[in-house]
Nucleic acid binder design. Structure first.
Lengths: 247, 247
DNA sequence: ACATAACAAAATGTATACATCGTCGATAGC
DNA sequence: GCTATCGACGATGTATACATTTTGTTATGT
């Protein structure tokens, strides 16, 4: 599945990375607040060294920012930045889809992608009401991971995976049991139709169509974001990925 | 111009980053070879700590890779990876151009971009033979930096700048006095025409056209890459950015 | 009461010491 | 002569100690 990065993380380094991620996304530290290295080190029970490494990495990923005077702080995202990050994911996934179509995807991987779509179809269609969120999220993530690697270009795959590290830009950002509203549920049906169309376009070597579809697919997440901001701001607290959005 | 990153680098950290970059790009260590932390530390006269930080960052940038057993090595790039990185730059710059056109670029920044194009015109047209490479490189870099920030999306700007950190993906990769061949020189004329067209498209709010043009503009670099690989491999050694390409 | 300057506390940046793991080589056995 | 295992060397991963900068507070002067 997603061998994500060539990460051969050492135990402490891994603890630091996951720990800080949880701290930030769990709302333990408010956006904009300083991330004190000693405080984190004590809280996680490890030394400052892996903490610093993790912070530097998270800065590269865009989750934390460097303070002008040194040190790091939890990054705050404006609504437009979230929107742009989603658009960016669409652009990159679109490129992955286009290249896969133009260059021809490896038959086995394309078959795997089609199998995932079939399973997704089952998950969505069988019991539209009693949908298994966990299962859908898992399959959806698998679809996007497979798509990212379908072009055979490691360069593209890396960048797609990179942008997905931003929590709200992930394809599963708005898929959460805590945020189970009809509007989101409807988007799953549309999304699944787009999944099918993307695979079809790649199979037919229709690069431009595949790219446009993947972009539009990402914009489904943007629509969900707008729904949260305009229609039901109470979801802001219930969608974990949106904890960092201020404005 | 390009305040690149919110990097408030400490002296040792900066020395480490620049030093290792020079080591890798200068060919002091062969691609694939291990980058021993102690060796680098002794060579640069600083401790291992900033070295490690710089290596971790360069791994994120894609210049070095993590060895399965730990530590880092100089990354080797296949021809297709170089080609894909250039394509990726085109995709991202294309997105920057499209968004600038769709959303409307700030008048002052657009004016600045037009001024750069004017200056570039002078540099190219006045003395086609006695072209000042340094000046052209500087203006060309300014054009691409300005374009990256023209959409107003910091997210997009960041990503464009990121991919440009890969030496061979930079817009100036094939602009070098050491590699002054007629084929490259001709590409400058075509490139300058594309610069003009990109600005025009953004000004006319023609987003799709702007995106397509920016992509095609990047493919000029891809053509130069193919020229090196197919027509004149002696350039492989003369174009500094291509030192990491094996195959 | 307010502003300013000096001082103290704390945080980061850097260096070094220690622990752990991988790799290379030598030696012993077959 | 070849292979396998044991051991030493070296490298990275981690922790800690030190130095420098930043920040917050307090006291003093106007």
């Amino acid at each position: 599945m997603g061998a994500a990065h060539p990460l051969r993380q050492q135990p402490q380094a891994l603890k630091a990375l996951m720990g800080i991620r949880d701290l930030v996304l769990g709302g333990a530290v408010t956006p904009g607040a300083r991330l004190s290295e000693v405080a984190i080190a004590e809280r996680l029970g490890i030394s400052r060294t892996p903490i610093r490494a993790a912070l530097a990495r998270l800065e590269q990923e865009g989750l934390v920012e460097i303070l002008p005077s040194g040190g790091y702080a939890v990054r705050r995202f404006s609504r437009s930045e979230v929107s742009d990050a989603i658009e960016l994911r669409g652009v990159l996934e679109g490129t992955a889809a286009r290249l896969a179509a133009e260059r021809g995807a490896p038959p086995d991987r394309l078959a795997a992608l089609k199998a995932i779509v079939e399973e997704l179809d089952g998950a969505v269609a069988d019991w539209p009401e009693a949908l298994d969120f966990d299962r859908y999220v898992e399959l959806n993530a698998a679809f996007h991971d497979t798509l990212a690697g379908l072009s055979g270009s490691e360069t593209i795959r890396r960048e797609v995976e990179r942008v997905k590290n931003l929590p709200f830009a992930s394809p599963s950002a708005f898929l959460d049991k805590q945020a189970d509203v009809p509007a989101f549920r409807r988007s799953l049906v549309t999304g699944q139709a787009q999944h099918r169309a993307i695979v079809e376009a790649i199979e037919m070597r229709e690069g431009t169509r595949a790219e446009a579809l993947a972009r539009e697919h990402a914009r489904l997440a943007r629509a969900n974001l707008e729904y949260v901001m305009e229609e039901d701001r109470s979801l802001l607290a219930r969608v974990p990925a949106l904890a960092l959005v201020n404005e």
